[in-house]
Design a protein around this nucleic acid. Sequence first.
DNA 1: AGCACGCCGACT
DNA 2: GTCGGCGTGCTC
Length: 740
Amino acid sequence: MQKLYADIIVDITQEKLDRTFQYIIPDRLREKLEVGMLVQVPFGKGSRTIKGYVIKLTDTAEFDLSRLKEIQEIVTDGLGPQSRLVRLAAWIREQYGSAMIQALKTVIPVKKKIKAREKKSIRLIMDREKAVSQLEFYRKKHQAARARLLEALLEDAELPYELAAGRLNITSAVIKALEEQQVIVCSSEKVYRNPLKGEMAEGQHISLNAEQQAAAEGIIRAWEAGDDRPSLIHGVTGSGKTEVYMELIAHVVENGQQAIMLIPEIALTYQTVMRFYRRFGERISVVNSRLSDGEKYDQFERARNGDIDVMIGPRSALFTPFQNLGAVIIDEEHERTYKSETTPRYDARETAIRRAEMEGARVVLGSATPSVESYYRALEGQYSLYQLKKRVREGELPDVCIADMREELKAGNRSIFSRRLLELTEDRLKNGEQVMLFLNRRGYSGFLSCRSCGHVLKCPHCEVSLSAHNNGKLVCHYCGYEEEIPHKCPSCGSAFLRGFKAGTQQIEELVRKQFPSARVLRMDLDTTKGKGGHDKILESFLNREADILIGTQMIVKGHDFPNVTLVGVLAADLSLHAGDYRCAERTFQLLTQAAGRAGRGERPGEVVIQTYDPSNYAVQAAASQDYEGFYWQEILFRSLAGYPPVSGMMAIHGTSEDQGQLELAMEYLKKLLDQIGKKNQLSIVGPADETVYKISDVYRKVLYVKHERREMLIMVKDRVEQYIEMNQGYKTINIQFELE
DNA sequence: AGCACGCCGACT
DNA sequence: GTCGGCGTGCTC
């Protein structure tokens, strides 16, 4: 198994060297060398010795053998944050299947030019008179480049390095020469930009209530007793999880360690950051998507240098290169933004647990509606579980009412608003209070349901809703099952089988028609496109510049509107029948969140959930804010239908511009899987079209593999990867793996 | 990034 | 001719 050659990346932070170089592995290192190791190699003309990371071990030389050099040495101190992250990248590659270089790039940001400008500068150290004569001297000697540089320096005594290299076309040789002649100095002073510029004093301490205290102390005691399991904090909305996080972070910092707090991108509000800033002062930093790559790199650099103790940010902040990481906290752990949508499709929660394991740190997950898999693990004992059941401000829970839309139809109401919702909206408008109308479109896939009995057309094999396609057929996105669209409801015989036309724009029109005097705001992808459009809309609604806010999930994320006393969920069914096994979970989370938006001020709130399926457990449990109740129903469904977390599941995504080739390839893969599966009791589902089966002329198909044990699925993935590598016919087809 | 190579103008 | 600076391109 020992390989002959190694692909090595020498300096990832340098854009031009951002690729691999192949080296020969000498006999004496062949046994020891592993992917992720830091090694010394001869590089460039003159073979100066530099360090590089091993990316891949291979037996095939992709380069003219006579030009390959040998690896010199394994660098023993592969213990810095950088090399730990490289090992994490190797794990990501292994786990989620991608090229090592891609994994590496997600873990270590590439230094961009922006950085150099801020960092390196050239300063004139000669006094003016002398410099002028020096300039004369260069001119006489026809040393154009030196003259050019000195001339520029006489205008501005200090120049950014990049400007010199760029506009003045000066090379490093020239700068070196002038440095030797003691005309200039190069300072590489690091000018970091702190995204939080000095506001407020630090050291503010908040006292915790009994429940918060118990959770924080319990976790710390477990840590000190050597319990390195991740902790899950299940805290109802408004129970003050953030205070617990801060307490834990303070503990970590006091021990001389650092902490990372992950938050879903959209939830990163100014208020949250300020709360941390007040507690921890200058020693925190924030990264978000608005930061340029250079700025992000700077913040990571600050962490590497030990200038900060706490990093707050989305998924990618997990890779902050701290020297001595103590804890990773993941807030709103159920959010799907923790799963990367691009290769490698890593899951930040799993990756955090892996990183913590490698570096001796702890992981804390928190949510008001924990994901089913996390709660399952907590109950299994893989995680330790802490509950926060009380709201900090003893606010009353909103009154939730479920409007049965089938009854509305029977009573002759064919509009999208139930009578209850209309009545309450009118009441709020009269009192000058605000209303939010929520359209939970997420995951909507075009299912068909009977408006008179609520029956939804489902796949007979997979227990998920079928989606209507343009070709007049109903399709299952797991196994590919198809049937003709029926004319009558198979359950009650009614002809009222309909899809949902779900668009915020149409809803806006209908609302305006229904309430001509109300001021209406709409918030969706269209209206938030511009810079800060998102904040602008929320702010104007907060300032009561509108009476009704219509929007998708983005309106229910963590914002407080004290004057909102009514929340209407227009069609709970939209996400409920999304055609994947997680739709009930998603619906429960969305509805719980939406309900949490009502009555945040002094007046109690009311919530109306409209649905054709009022007895559905996700709707019922959300209405009564009963997480446990929901969980047990859901886990029952998952174990009966063989879905995660009870069973392991892996998706194999195939994409290609050639539809025929793709179909063929996926069928072959299925056969291969069948073969592997004979001995191992794999269950194989599909192949089927993806929910969106074609994106910009690229066809997409998916195959699912299920097995009780996850390790088995990883083995299957390795086998399939090997198979693909051997078969050149797969060149036009891209295969990706996703473990659930 | 750092290094060498080849080009080009200036001067022994 | 040769010396030395300058810009370009490559590095397994």
